[in-house]
């Protein structure tokens, strides 16, 4: 199996109502494994990763509120949450925007070259994805909270992943 990057992109927070929607906004991926069963299992994977993500968010928040303001500043900048958890086959990385849009990146645990995926790579990839997402929802016809169906976005995301791989 070639390296498969698999993005999940979702978890919009509706701040106005203070309730999480936690439903996927966009799911996309590259790789040769398009089996629906695997697809579903990956979705389970991402779904369960949300727990860890939220927990990390919460702990971050408590840290920042309790700690000094320096921390807050850095925390505000650091939207990247790092590795959420890994399984035998996949690694799951998290990223949360300031508007609590959660970006989750799933990669296979091993890259074909054998080298581990570096943290920095993932970080930049997620940052770029964030930028793409921001572009995508700038579309005035997009309703926040709806699934993103833009073909352009899809293409761009896939490009991004291919380049990173």
């Amino acid at each position: 199996m070639t390296t498969r990057s698999w993005w999940r992109h979702g978890e919009s927070y509706r701040m106005s109502r203070l309730r999480t929607k936690n439903s996927p906004l966009y799911i996309g991926g590259i790789g040769n494994d398009t089996n629906t069963d695997n697809e579903l299992s990956r979705q389970w994977l991402v779904h369960t990763a949300l727990d860890a993500l939220e927990e990390r968010l919460a702990s971050n928040n408590s840290n920042t509120t309790g700690a000094n303001t320096n921390n807050t500043r850095t925390d505000l900048r650091d939207l990247y949450l790092g590795l959420l958890y890994s399984t035998d086959t996949h690694k799951i990385y998290g990223y949360v925007t300031n508007t609590r849009i959660k970006l989750v990146l799933v990669t296979s645990s091993t890259s074909p070259s054998g080298s581990n995926i570096r943290d920095a790579e993932v970080r930049t990839a997620l940052r770029r994805l964030h930028a793409l997402y921001a572009d995508a929802i700038c579309n005035p016809f997009h309703l926040p909270g709806d699934q993103i169906t833009s073909l352009k976005f899809d293409k761009q995301v896939k490009n991004l992943m291919l380049n990173n791989v």
Binding site: R19, N22, S23
Partner: peptide, 12 residues
């Protein structure tokens, strides 16, 4: 009313 969660998984 709330439409939360992950529909694909919920359906499964």
């Amino acid at each position: 009313q709330h439409q939360v969660g992950w529909p694909a998984l919920q359906i499964q």
